[in-house]
Design a protein around this nucleic acid. Sequence first.
DNA 1: CCGCGGGTGTACGGCAACGCACCGACCTGG
DNA 2: CCAGGTCGGTGCGTTGCCGTACACCCGCGG
Lengths: 210, 210
Amino acid sequence: MAQCELVELGFGDVLCEAGDPIRHVYFPTASFISLISVVDKGSNLEVGLVGAEGMLGSSLLLGVGVSSLCALVQGAGPALRMEATQFSRELKRSAPVRERLNLYLYVLITQLTQMAACARYHLVEARLARWLLMTRDRAQSNEFRLTQEFLAYMLGVRRAGITRAASQLQQRRLIAYSRGKMRILDARGLEGVSCECYASAAQMYARVMA
Amino acid sequence: MAQCELVELGFGDVLCEAGDPIRHVYFPTASFISLISVVDKGSNLEVGLVGAEGMLGSSLLLGVGVSSLCALVQGAGPALRMEATQFSRELKRSAPVRERLNLYLYVLITQLTQMAACARYHLVEARLARWLLMTRDRAQSNEFRLTQEFLAYMLGVRRAGITRAASQLQQRRLIAYSRGKMRILDARGLEGVSCECYASAAQMYARVMA
DNA sequence: CCGCGGGTGTACGGCAACGCACCGACCTGG
DNA sequence: CCAGGTCGGTGCGTTGCCGTACACCCGCGG
């Protein structure tokens, strides 16, 4: 903690492009960050979401100082950050820290594999619901700012596809949104619409990190 | 090596179901293994391929003895295997081994994230070509046994979809196959048809493990 | 007050892949 | 030689999403 510096992450900030060397690791406190896989330019897909429960830069745990993903700030807010070199040094020193973070990396990996199948099979509406729930957990609030454009980018679909799905959810009084303001009205109901990926990921986290 | 036992893996063997505790780790020598993400039953997706270049059970590196993926033997052949507990002990002992395997785990993770986007965006034909190339590398042969049914399962598409794509490739004299026997005629040509995920993954492996 | 731009709703044609089903070709073994 | 199983090719209607494009609403600043 003493080695960390408190920084404010702004919405839309790119902390790291794919292939970049990792300068800092981040521990969001009340912010959250999307991990995005980039194949061709234009084909982007969110494969992970990091909030207060996790960290950005976990590949340093494996001794690799290069990120293979793009890190985009999804929810503005404070985070702690540490120099990558310092972080590596700290890892060497403390086995408990290492073990704990290893567990988190494991959870993250399972999240990745699940997201892969989710993006392949599940319908936009279900994925949208899942995304909203995951974001809610990390934002620790039922309300947050985001545009449909942005959602489309995250889920890798057309904006029009989001409009359709979101309208459906709104008609069923599960969410309320307008002009960049999203509010979740009925989280329980959303879980019903969402794919099990949400519940499954939450459960995985709880089980492993317990 | 001395702790390892030589075993013969049979085509179609399931070494590990999702959620199972890991009993053994495997180091394929001339066999290879698919890693499959299972969400709903029926919705399966291959997210990684392990051959002589890697190992099965790498989550033990993170101190977790439970697999989150299903491991299916894709190419029959010999492999070395070790008891999970022994493997963990060995890891503690040897830092060089740990570091080396950590690198592999990193490569595997990037493979996962890439597969996620690949399965989401790329067409069946391109994905099929990629799969054949990846398999060829691991089989170390231009010929191997596999049915369209099986391919469909791996790529998460209909068998009819594979028939279409495979026919196209065959018409262009890139492959030749019939009744479970697949032969690659023109690997270079296949690379052209395949998505860049193939080249990109191979390059990543070479760079990190060098 | 008006123009502008960000955010949203909607429409149309097109396409890849889906689910299903059936048939033919081939292999093997009794 | 035939029966049965495995494997591959094909067709049909359906669907979820794409690409593109246009129209609308609202707030803000000139």
